[in-house]
Design a protein around this nucleic acid. Structure first.
Lengths: 352, 352
DNA sequence: TATATTTACGGGTACGTACCCGTAAATGAG
DNA sequence: CTCATTTACGGGTACGTACCCGTAAATATA
């Protein structure tokens, strides 16, 4: 009569007339329980809609979960990956008390072998989940194929590889991002204007650039706007090469009134435009809230930066694995970031 | 020799040569400890930089923390407050296991008495912290004065009242928001263009509208742009009144090429512009990602919506109190939201 | 001085779950 | 049939903190 209602495993054990150790074995699918007892306990679990108390579980369990992060290192050239790293570290701080360790493995964007080396180090360790930036598509696919075979869940950050069994992709919707750039580039156009797309990277055959450029051009097709769209593919990323290349283009073409740079190297184009003594400066659009770009945005040389909240990408990629590994909850296959428009006027409050 | 290193209160007790119950009394500043013993224990706490294990603390403590939320109800007229409510509920779900209860108290934006009634109900309950939207400035100030006297921390959401001892303000930087609107409104201007600011609300003397309008006008002053800026203050919020008012204005003025609406009722202006058979539609800017506005954004009548992530505002306001009440950590006095520019092209990925 | 009250302190139990190790019973092998 | 191995099960301890209640010593009061 004075029996106080118990909770959790104790109540299940009481109802099933077994010890809580037996309930625990059923919950964790361990051996040492007869089929009959197991069935009886599972039925009570379902009736009670038993939800484990995560606080107690973490406190009692000695098990740790290891997450590996494989992303480009922050370089002098670009600090883009600083923000995802901060998001990753923020997530780690939040979930550390749940027994999660995050280990960082950096590679160089200029060296596919560094990716392979770090990927192999990850495979040599005991790892429960992986966050990776698939900057080198072939190498990343080889790596993720091994992960799939070993049953290790992985999350793509900032770029996707379609057709992979990733747990999740967390990054920008690239086609639509380029489409928006198309719209923004129209604000300073005249009847005789030309537009210029600038791609600056050592390797330009990736899925990423193609999506962005397709989106940009599709805006003009959809709206039946007939402006000529020039294109500059620049594989030497030093400023002198960029400057020469652009100089030749601008010399050969008057009326370039809008320039769209398909990645974060828009600061090089801004620098070029600033060094050019021209009465009319074209509208300039590029990507990413990195320090160099912020400087030219503040001075007005860059008109729009399109940004995809890289810090939140880092945060969410870790949290996706937490959700999968700790909460045992489903994770969205794709989480597209918002397409943020950053201008001189709102940049002070932008949260990258 | 085989003594395993202990952690937390056990290690402190070992070093101080007291029982853990005594350490507990010191940690919680309870009586029953001599000054000498208390000082010795506090010194060890500082040496070890003791951080309580929150999981264990919540598991062991029977105490609950009660947070009251005082915000406008979601109405047929505007669903703006739906998003903050979702953010609040998300935060609650995340921190419920830490012993936090969130209780919702809604008031009507058309009725200051409803605010007073709900505020008094909150004061009659046992409450540890409050999130409130200070829609009615005088009433809100009275309420927060009582909270201060009773030592109850409160967080302002979406609007601030300067000079109050709030724990935090979480909302948009309004002046800068209006300033950005000024910039955006220039994209379709010609030499003879006029601009129009539209304020639609029953009460227009609040701090909020003044900041926005000041920001808008300051953009033109700063850039020495001499366009005439008309203004419409509309206190009857039904569509017929708005329509009549605007019709008269447009009849009396040709060349209104940009319209800036200072709140979420921009859908009424959009509807008016759509009903007007005019060959040239002015650029239209307003606030908030509410359903009616999204509809006109998608169709192209509205060119820009300026948004301040109201869902995240709700989430962060609860988390600010959690940080203060549970983590005992400092909270930023002001957390300004990003100023988001939402267009037809990026609206599908906007996370309100 | 005797008695009552207050202060200082510690053992023990609780929270909900994880998991070790021991015991009894059932099953398999020689 | 005897002995070895496996299976099923439960008591107990652990995790780190919170807090109750009992005991001894110190202090106050009559």
């Amino acid at each position: 009569m004075k029996k106080k209602e118990l909770q959790g495993v104790k109540e299940i054990a009481r109802r099933a007339n077994v010890a809580i150790a037996t309930v625990d074995r059923v919950i964790h699918n361990r051996t040492g329980v007869s089929a009959k007892t197991r069935e009886k306990i599972n039925k009570i679990i379902a009736e009670l809609n038993y939800q484990p108390n995560l606080l107690a579980r973490r406190l009692a369990s000695g098990k740790t979960i290891s997450i590996a992060v494989l992303i480009p290192s922050v370089t002098e050239e670009t600090d883009f990956w600083e923000a995802p790293l901060q998001g990753i570290q923020q997530a780690e701080a939040e979930i550390r008390s749940y027994g999660i360790n995050v280990n960082l493995f950096f590679f160089e964007l200029s060296d596919p072998n560094s990716f392979i080396t770090q990927a192999n180090r990850i495979l040599d360790s005991t790892v429960d989940g992986i966050v990776l930036a698939p900057s080198f598509v072939d190498e990343a696919q080889e790596f993720t194929t091994v992960c799939q075979r070993n049953g290790i869940p992985f999350v793509f950050i900032d770029a996707d590889i379609p057709g992979q069994q990733s747990l999740s992709y967390i990054g920008p919707p690239l086609f639509q991002s380029g489409y928006l750039a198309g719209k923004l580039s129209t604000y300073k156009l005249h009847e005789t204007s030309k537009l210029l797309i600038v791609n600056i990277a050592t390797s330009l055959d990736s899925f990423t650039y193609k999506q962005i450029e397709d989106g940009f051009k599709t805006y003009f097709t959809d709206h039946e706007l007939k402006y000529p769209i020039l294109r500059a593919d620049i594989r030497q990323t030093d400023f002198a090469s960029i400057s020469n290349h652009l100089q030749q283009l601008f010399d050969a073409n008057t009326d370039i009134d809008a320039v769209f740079v398909s990645n974060s190297r828009v600061f090089s184009v801004a620098r070029f435009l600033d060094s050019r003594q021209s009465s009319q400066k074209p509208l300039l659009i590029g990507y990413d809230f990195v320090n160099e770009n912020i400087h030219f945005l503040a001075s007005g040389t860059i008109d729009f930066l399109i940004c995809h909240q890289p810090k939140d990408q880092g945060y969410r990629s870790i949290m996706a694995l937490y959700q999968h590994l700790v909460l045992l909850a489903p994770v969205a296959k794709e989480y597209y970031m918002p397409i943020d428009i950053v201008t001189q006027e709102n940049q002070a409050f932008y949260r990258n």
